[in-house]
Design a protein around this nucleic acid. Structure first.
Lengths: 205, 205
DNA sequence: TTTTTTACATTCAAAAGTGTATGGATAAAG
DNA sequence: CTTTATCCATACACTTTTGAATGTAAAAAA
């Protein structure tokens, strides 16, 4: 086989990752062979074993393309007036998170991670999910604590409980939407749920 | 091999299902072979193929042991005074659901269904999860509608939004707890979250 | 008691998947 | 211009798993 240009080689690597996403979504991670991935990208397993050590390595590379921690979402807002409106910061962070998730690549890879793969090799999707949920919960707790100090939280509502409720609701919404994203938009539905939930939590002035 | 008594045969069938749960939890559904299941139960694949058509059939039999629809939980309460207190009915149904989930068999099988299996054969865990969540959501909607009619819901809170929020929160809590049940009790933590969530939703008298 | 099922164990053939080794054409380095 | 390293296809050996076929001793039916 003829050697390819550096750019061409990088392109086939991306093509392999795209093909892997397709097959993983359709048949699950465990049930798709490296041969199926290669064929779907118009190549053979030789290409796969050149670019990746094995299936776990390919899977890891696929995940690297879509990491999004909750804290980053807040920082990207970059609005200094939000320091006085932590609940609004939470709302906006959720909204921009929803927007990201509606990009096909983000949605597909998270769907694979959560709904279409089991533990295999050195990849443990459950521990990854635990990391994500703990990051989210601690970030939320930070803002609910600020809200409590600013007297913007209902007096009967403890900040840690609020953070847990919010994180559980976001996680549940996330899971539900990933299961059937074609039925509704997480950006629109999520907006309604998050807004009313925050309204319920907010101190009535 | 010597033929077994009917009772003995039924016992080995249960033993095979128990062994399957063990292996599925530990290694995932796709990565455990029928031979591993049989060996873990102290038998060979012959026993498996006698009692079950194949892996999907065994999986299906395993699920049959633990079905629990939300409506059944409400009916089991069997308290006529709850007709006037729909939010209390929801709370109690959640509590008894939590209790059921803390039984090892229920917890393990649901953990397998949600976190340790991919689509395979004619088994699609995602459609099963969809059924579960839709059942829960429509049941919740029924009770939130009752609450709205009895003026027990905050005026600013639409019943369908309330049902969606509640279902998302329950689902998120469920997923989180299944991922690390050893860290906390869903009965205790769930009680706190559900109680405060319902308190937030309730109409202040 | 004799006959027939039952409840498995054992064996076999076939398929599928993995990792590696090898080859070859060419882009890139010198 | 030579040389080398790259990018990928092809071929091979190996393991794992499956489903079916066969064997068989005892329970159950007759």
């Amino acid at each position: 086989m003829a050697r390819k240009t550096k750019a061409e080689a990088a392109a086939t690597r991306e093509a392999l990752l795209n093909a892997a996403e397709d097959m993983f979504i359709e048949h699950g991670v465990a049930r798709t062979s490296l041969d199926q991935i290669a064929r779907h990208a118009g190549m053979t397993r030789g290409a796969v074993y050149w670019h990746f050590k094995n299936k776990a390595d390919l899977f890891h590379a696929m995940l690297q393309r879509v990491r999004l921690p909750f804290e980053d979402l807040v920082e990207e807002l970059d609005d200094p007036t939000l320091d006085q409106k932590p609940l609004e910061a939470v709302r906006l962070a959720c909204m921009s998170g929803f927007s990201r998730l509606e990009q096909p690549r983000y949605r597909r890879v998270h769907s694979i991670l959560i709904h279409h793969c089991e533990i295999f090799g050195d990849i443990d999707p459950l521990s990854m999910q635990n990391e994500m949920s703990e990051d989210t919960c601690s970030a939320l707790l930070k803002y609910f604590n600020m809200a409590a100090k600013l007297n913007q939280l209902r007096p009967c509502l403890a900040p840690d409980i609020a953070a847990q409720i919010m994180q559980a609701m976001l996680g549940g919404l996330f899971h539900d939407w990933l299961r059937n994203h074609e039925h509704y938009s997480i950006h629109d539905e999520g907006a309604r749920l998050v807004e009313t939930q925050l309204a319920l939590m907010q101190h009535a002035p």
